[in-house]
Nucleic acid binder design. Structure first.
Lengths: 226, 226, 226, 226
DNA sequence: CATGAATGAGAGTTCATTCAT
DNA sequence: GATGAATGAACTCTCATTCAT
């Protein structure tokens, strides 16, 4: 359970991604396991901050180790590799947001309320998953080249389908304008939300839900006076 | 004329940024200058493509040299450093877009048309400056830490002022809704436009101006049916 | 305790010289420290030999690593840079000799005996600090250009003061000829001693103290028969 | 006559040192030859200044070319290599000083006056050959490793013989103290003179001959009051 | 004679990773 | 679990030198 590189993706079968050093015998009592897990999560959080601040490539494993007060080699007791750390960060984010998105859809609301719900979910993740989202924004171009992260592409495709279906349904029901390209519209909405992570400061003038409200206003009715 | 590190920033006084190796006597005839400049620009374009594709850090100078069919050391005949190449890319982009933005403002149109004009300028740069914009999107977090690129921050501030002033004027004239935060709105608009570079493919279904039209519709009137 | 770049200069306050990579948390037990220090000193000695033999610039870090039987990159586990190695070499030498000089002065002998004492101290360092002195003689011109080594200039000034004061006092007391320029005389003495490192071979006909005796004879009474 | 790498050593047969590119046909009218020679000498002087200031290794051919207002490649119209430039500098110095030393010996004076003459010759070269002497002092360790400069070692041996013979003769004639080692004494004298180049400033309080006088006083009679 | 572009070897340095203790 | 030493590959950059124009 606390093996290296653990990732539970609820969406895709965890097929075929490599799992280095997996075979070794590693059993432990329950108590220490929990402690180990805590330590591990702590390290992941430290790493996430650094990745967000300086970028994945620019962050060295020594940076992370320094922050944790250990030597860089010692990190390899907890993680297979630098990649597996960022993997853990992103997986955590994706698991949560996918579940939240599905919960919105499962409510079976009308398309307008569904869209509002999805937007609120996204903005709601801005604070708790700030680091993961920042990494996605800044380092996606680099990470996407690695087989290991192909699951992100799959999840992204699933999210796109959720949105496009909802937007199209909204058009059919006369809620949304007919002259919009659902795919294009989705992309704009998505990007606008996530990119906010670059300047959003928790504890600033507006909190995440205030931002969501502001954004929904513009998105639904535009900036013009009608 | 063909000195290393040449950059003409129309905005900021070019004060104090280092100009390596420039000191020596270097005067030249005339004809060769144009040829040298062509070669140089060719190399810059090659580098821009690679930076856009793989990221600034992940692109090695050998990658660039390989692409140009020369050895990595030979690049240093044309450029001081890897940084000075990306500098040239970004400066070219900023010089052009700043001039275009100012031209829009100088027309003295009403705020709505001005906003439309600014948006069209931005989308219009998506194709010719695709690489530069991609680098800005993906590597900004890394580049911003370097003194050398502080001019980008200055330019960015100037652009923000253009937008915020225009949006505020529009609100005063009753063109834009009063309940919008101009600064927040600007940021959303800005990010939404630039981030499009990630998926925009020249020669696709919509060209840049088609995108601009689509975007202006949503921005001005929202996705709702009124 | 075993941090990189450690240097204890007893003369100058260690103000403001950079201490790369030092920031991270780094605390240690005790026993290993001594071993680490031994390894480090061994490497410093190897490097010193090479610097003395081939010059600082002409000695590559790969040369040093080869001599130590490791890879060049591994040196950076122990030292920040090539410069920090030579720094360590020179600091060790300066700390020792400054202390020895001060000890001579603290005895409060008459100027003639003091001068003799200083000369003997200098010659006495020829063997144990042969490499450092050689580097000072051959590479000073290069090293003096670096901020990092400004402490050498300060120490040198302090030494000059010791000598000039002693020589002047000797003149006042009628021990040394009045028609000598103390500063000029000091420089001649100093250079004559240190430059001997170029041909002095430990285990040769004369040992360092034999040399000192020979030199003192010439210095005090000249080569003429009186 | 104006071929690359020209060196006329009056001492040693110019045996076997490589002469790159020597074969090529290169004839010229007398007038242009003189001009070329002037240009060449100018470049050598520029290079000598730089070598003296920064050291041979630390001076790049670009440094030299910059100083001359040309491109680095253009230097190779005048010289085979960086080494051949320093060779020219040192050869010029050695030719002159060897001739001057021999002239002193040829006067057949008594050993004391001969020693004084040799010392004055040496100090007299401090100003006109400051750069060459500086290079010898600072870069000798590096240059001595190259076959090309073996002639320096030969000349040095010849000079040593001149001195040692003179000092020994002086001892036999009862002019110099018996308890001195001639070889050791010679080395001290030699080093003390040349090393003065490090701090000797033309136009300072003492000119070269003033320095020589000061030095001869100390050397002959010591610093003690008798 | 000079230019300008390129070569090719090698420099110092970085860094993810391994592993015996 | 952690240390500390090391690996090995790669990186940016430098520089003497060559040569077609």
């Amino acid at each position: 359970m606390t093996r290296h590189n653990e990732r539970v993706t609820t969406t895709s079968a965890d097929s075929g991604r490599p799992r280095t050093r997996a075979g070794g015998a590693r059993r432990r009592g329950k108590g220490s396991s929990a402690l180990a897990s805590e330590r591990r999560e702590h390290l992941v959080r430290l790493a996430a901050e650094l990745f967000a601040e300086k970028g994945f490539q620019a962050t060295t494993v020594r940076n992370i180790a320094d922050e944790a007060g250990i030597l860089s080699g010692s990190l390899y007791h907890h993680f297979d590799s630098k990649e597996s750390i960022v993997d853990e960060i992103l997986t955590g984010f994706y698991n949560e947001i996918m579940a939240a998105y599905r919960a919105v859809l499962d409510k079976g609301m009308n398309p307008r309320d569904t869209v509002a719900g999805l937007v609120r979910v996204a903005f709601g993740n801005l604070e708790p998953h700030r680091a993961a989202i920042t990494v996605m924004q800044n380092d996606w171009n680099y990470l996407k080249g690695m087989d290991r992260f192909s699951y992100l592409i799959k999840s992204e495709a699933e999210v796109e389908k959720m949105w496009v279906d909802t937007l199209s349904a909204g058009q059919k029901q006369g809620l949304f304008r007919e002259d919009l390209d659902p795919k294009l519209t989705y992309r704009m909405i998505r990007d606008t939300i996530w990119v906010a992570v670059r300047w959003f400061k928790p504890g600033g003038r507006l909190d995440a839900q205030g931002l969501a409200d502001h954004y929904l206003k513009v998105m639904f009715d535009g900036i013009n006076v009608h």
